[in-house]
Design a binder for these strands. Sequence first.
DNA 1: CTAGGGTTAG
Length: 795
Amino acid sequence: MIGSAIAAAAASTKQRDRNFFLNLLKSCTNLAQLNRTHAQIILNGLRKDLITITKLTHKLFDFKAISQAKLLFTSLSNQIAPDKFLYNVLIRGFSQKESPLDSLSIFAHLRNKTALKPDNFTYAFVVSAVSSPGFEKVGILLHGNVIASGFSSDPFVGSALVDMYMGFSEISSAYKVFEKIPERDTVLWNTMVSGLVRNCCFYEAVSVFRDMVVGGSQFDSTTLAVVLTATAELQELRTGMIIHGLALKANCHFHDHVLTGLVSFYSKCGDVVDAWLLFGLIRKPDLISYNAMISGFSCNNETESAVRLFKELLVSGEKVNSSTIVGLIPVSSPFGLLDLAHTVLGFCVKCNMVSNSSVSTALVTVYTRLNEMESARQLFDESPDKSLASWNAMISGYAQNGLTEMAISLFRKMQLLDIHPNPVTITSILSAIAQLGAPSLGKWVHDLIKKENFESNIYVSTALIDMHAKCGSIAEAQRLFYAMPEKNDVTWNAMISGYGLHGHGHEALSLFHEMLDSGVSPTGVTFLSVLYACSHAGLVEEGKKFFHSMTHDHGFKPSAEHYACMVDLLGRAGKLENALEFINKMPIQPGPGEWGALLGACMIHKDSNLACFVSDKLFALDPENVGYRVLLSNIYSVDRNYPQAASVRQVVKKRNLAKTPGCTLIEMNGHPYVFKSSDRSHPRVTAIYAMLEKLMGKMIEAGFQTETITAFHDVEDEEKELMVKVHSEKLAIAFGLIASEAGAEIRIIKNLRVCLDCHNFTKFVSKITERVIVVRDANRFHHFKDGLCSCGDYW
DNA sequence: CTAGGGTTAG
């Protein structure tokens, strides 16, 4: 029809008027039609008609013909004087094609080179052009212009301003603008809600929506769709269902956007069945709806369905974006779906998407979750422009997989390239340092935090508390904790578990009550941390009471970890029978956690009969785990049953089960030194071994029989060699003694649990050298002083 | 018949 209209126009020699072309322009549905119409406009002498040109320019932007629009403007601007309308179309056009600089330069031209006055349209467009991070300065300047020109209460300009501040993550400025606008229309409210959602302020988004409804403002399908995503993130089942009700009443229920919002809401709340049903009601499912459903399946562990839908999307030829890949991440983690990751990667390579920074970041995340660190690093190295998010993905991947040195060295590289970290980077790197237990690195990062002004960030300061506690300075952690003006549940948990780590059970308990008084609700982790603290401080009765109160007063359903902690509490205190009874009475099937805790208790209390029984359970549950076998072998050793110990070790060896090699870290004058078992690589190796020999000699003199010395009878050669090996912590302590001033505290960190022999050795050394020795092992801190250890020999 | 330009968004 349109084609024939154009044909008629071309065939006719009769001059067409402006109105004819305006209608024709309006009905163009693609660029080719538009170009033909443009030709006709020229033929009909309307080339310089401002009104026709304005509409034409507008249409060119609609079809994303941005360079053509630019060309048209530059070629005409010295022949005709553009008016405000044309300027406005250009400013909007560029702003929507994401070339804010072009928008700004047109705006500047309008202000400086013409006598035209910008109006509310102009400001709405130019403000929305600069609504992304990086334009803060010019954005605030424009806000000043808006006020000066008297447009601050215009709803269109107001919405644009609110959106702009939301884009800068200046939430409070956005609120200020919003509150100053008396007439709040639906779009303004929507701008607030969606801005809050974009900034992950989901709770605030829901609360603004509530104000909107209570205040009687009209909402629309956009409002509902957006606020649904907030309830999805919050897993606010009640609120989400109320909104679903509102959608039904307002007849918005069948809007595709609302349905998509409902899909993410129900799936994030665990109701994937309803989500799938609603997904089926979407008339024209597009990428966003698919993404919502795929991520819905994957966060509910419905791997097969997620993969099926993903493949369906692939074969449909529909484009996939970074959100699709990001949505698949939960699927790839617990199931080790390496195949899927490779499929995704293959697809991304084919579509040339790997160079897209958010896709490559997502892929890096997928591979780090699968603990495929080499693949992740390769992807990272090959991505052409690395965003801060990609750096963070790689660094936190290393930190989460225990590759702390890699995390730190990558962070160093970042520093060298002068790439500034953000709070996310800092939080990951602090976690790495906490795992490593390197206080000198901690100080370095702490200074950096001050320099970058991240101290007030709650994530950063919480990570700092955790780092200080895990690096041994519980006092510093405590100081930081009480200096924090605002604390969240994680902050409290970090401090409580810090106390537990150092064996300060009473402090942990009293901090828990402080937490309750402060109004922050405890989480599962809080209860776990308190139980852990009770267990490591030998507070059996308190722990039992606490466990009871957790279920009865706080209505918490204990998880497997809580049960394991209780077994640990009982077992550690020597109540092995009670611990076994507790396991047998558990309402859920006992798993490796509970049996493992009991096996640990058997080790401490030298009950090899029970250990044998428990081990059988464990080997059946988790045949690949080496730790349990090592533990069992140690139990036999402690019991002087060396042939049995050796035979357990033989199984480990025969089945090729890899054992984590032990190592110990010590810092001397700000330098970290790592010792492996029987290490001879240190430059002062001779002095270290001499010191060790001297100490061992004194120990025998004093009547300390070390476990290894008595162990030499009837042991096979191979086993003997294993026992004769000097554990890394002994080397580190000997080095600490010769490299530090007399009386100085010695701090070491061991990656595995300290063995009985080394524990005895350290107690003895602390006595004869009059040193405080602080040892962090895989589980906790040991403070050795005057021949005693803070763990009370239960660890 | 005086024409051409709006802000948010699953």
